[in-house]
Every structure is written in C-alpha cells, then in structure tokens.
Design a protein around this nucleic acid. Sequence first.
DNA 1: GTACATGCAAATTGTTTGCAAGTAT
DNA 2: ATACTTGCAAACAATTTGCATGTAC
Lengths: 145, 145
Amino acid sequence: MDPNKRIVDALRSSGYKATPQRVAIAQTVLRSKNHPSAETIHEEVLRLHPTVSLSTVYNTLHILREMNFLNELTFNGTTRYDPNISLHINMICLHCGKIIDVEEPSLEESINKIAERKGFKITGQRVDIYGVCKPCQKHENSVGL
Amino acid sequence: MDPNKRIVDALRSSGYKATPQRVAIAQTVLRSKNHPSAETIHEEVLRLHPTVSLSTVYNTLHILREMNFLNELTFNGTTRYDPNISLHINMICLHCGKIIDVEEPSLEESINKIAERKGFKITGQRVDIYGVCKPCQKHENSVGL
DNA sequence: GTACATGCAAATTGTTTGCAAGTAT
DNA sequence: ATACTTGCAAACAATTTGCATGTAC
C-alpha cells in the first residue's frame, strides 16, 4: 500500500486532519533508521517543506506517539524518536552517540510475565544499555569522552 | 558501619571533599525509596541545611552518579534519582507517577549475554515499563490522566 | 463554513555555569 | 594556607504555549 495513504488514513481515523506538514513529518520519522531528534527531523522536513516550524514538528511527533507509531527516548537532555515500537534493546554508545537496536524476543516474554504478575497494564517500554561500542573501544583513549 | 562514615570515606577516596552539604545530600538520596527529583531532594535537604542551593544538589548528584552510587532516570522532562543500581525494572505508572522497582535477576544475565555477543562494554542500563498500576486501574476513568 | 492546524515569537522548565566568598583538609 | 566548594544569579537548551492567520474537510 502507498505509505502516504497509510499515514493519511491513520491520522484521519484517529480524528486528526491529514495536513501536508503532518504527512511529511510522519514519513520522515517513520522511515528513519538513526533515532533522530526533533531538530534533525525538522531539518530533514525543511528540505521539502521550507516553512514547516519546529513546533509543528513537536506537535506531530506527540500525535504519532499517542497513536503508537513511535517511541520517545529521552537521553542526555534531548529526546530521540524511534519508529521501532517492538520491544527491543537500545544499545547506546556514550562515545560516538550511536544507538543500535537489538531485537530480543525473549525479553518481551519475560517482561510481559512480570507485568502480568503485578497486575500492571503495559502501554510502553524501554530497554537501554549504555556503554562503549566495539569500534569505539579501539580508539577510546584517543578521543576524549 | 556508620552510614555517614561510609559516605565520607567514599567521597574522599574518590578525591572529593566531604563537605556537610554533600554528606547530607548523599544521605537523603541514598536512603530514598521514591525515586526523587533534584527538586524534591533539595527540599528534603533544606530541612536540615537551610542554605544549601539547588546547584549544589545537582553537583553532588552528578558526583554520586560518577561514583556509581545511583542511577539517573530521565523521564517526562525531569530526572529522577534511583539509589538502586542493580539491574532491575522500573515499573512506571503514568496515572499516579509512582515508580516501582522490580528485581529480576534473569534479566541481567540475558542482557550481559547480548552485550558480550556484540562486543559492547556496558557501563549502565535502564529498563522501564510504562503503563497503569493495579490500584490506578480501578479508578482510571475517575481521575483524568 | 467552521473547527482545527500552522507558524511565529515569547514563555517556561529543568539544568548548567561564572564567580566572589567561604571552608575542609 | 590554599585548592576546592558553595550559593547566588544569570545563562542555557529543549520544549511548550498564545494567538492571529490559514486550510482541510
């Protein structure tokens, strides 16, 4: 299906108007692979829609989160947006800043079991590992953290 | 051992001066059970040391984090401090804001295994579940989110 | 046509910083 | 004695908000 139409339909059926700005922002973030910040998404969207404001970006990102189309990862002061909503591990390198997603189905199962035991209704989750990635370990001392 | 002395010793052996402010702040946060914010810790400390400033609180909290005495959990705009540094699950109720720690030793093992496989050197981690806790589910509709 | 969305600028919030005065060692 | 800390106020950065104008339905 046309991904454009998919987003338009989703917005409408959640009661939001499908403005060109929203569709462009949604396209950008849902297609992203590098956990962009709001600012990064804004810059990207500006290339096609030069007048879109940062507040519209924030507004749309909040709508998309509410629609469960993405996760927010606040980390080191700013929020990064992750279109991968499956339960996965964010392996965050404190040296180069890269975030690598690691899929791990067994985690989901064990977390669901724990929540169920406590009678907790899950709406979202986040699993982060902080540290130093393999490539960075080689030249860890050459570039100050 | 006198917990006071333990903190004093730890600060000194990390090269920091053991000022009364730092000791008071450390006592407060390390003893806390409710994942306080910097502001909350500040208010608490003010009861005994009425002149301590918020920046000293932040400064001390950063030192304690560096010494691995606590974890920082940034969530919904503010940072909460957690003296529980073992790998556990933060079960966060979006309704009442309470954070419940759930110990889960098996998680640690599986996360370590994943990191090892990727050659990733772990320095910290964070596992959050967001949702609605049992007590809140009863009156979920009576109190707006 | 109208209720909702946009885009700008100003406001807000949590946190950090610069620096003179104070204090732990 | 002196290098490190404190506490205040001002600075900062990310995000949010108010409102006049514009637009999707």
